[in-house]
């Protein structure tokens, strides 16, 4: 059981890491693009999706089942 928890945590950590890379780079690019750049819209979509995914990560059920209730 403890092993499963640990590998789940690692997985969670890895995905958050990757998402924060997507978020970070898209933020930097959004800042650098001219206001009227046509690609701004697409980039914003990438950014928002990553943000939503990050939000979803926060809602991953946190193993209440393991706490013995």
């Amino acid at each position: 059981m403890a092993d499963a928890t640990r590998s789940f945590d690692r997985w969670l950590h890895d995905v958050r890491n990757q998402l924060s890379i997507i978020l970070g780079f898209s933020e930097i690019l959004l800042q650098e693009l001219e206001g009227d750049d046509a690609r701004r819209h697409d980039l914003q979509e990438i950014h928002d999706a990553a943000e939503r995914a990050m939000g979803a990560m926060g809602r991953v059920p946190q193993k209440e089942d393991e706490s013995g209730r």
Binding site: N17, Q18, S20, I21, G24, F25, I28
Partner: peptide, 15 residues
């Protein structure tokens, strides 16, 4: 240990 994070920090700090 995550190269992507390194790339990100580098990109940001350079600015």
């Amino acid at each position: 240990d995550e190269p992507g994070i390194l790339a990100l920090v580098e990109r940001f700090a350079r600015t």
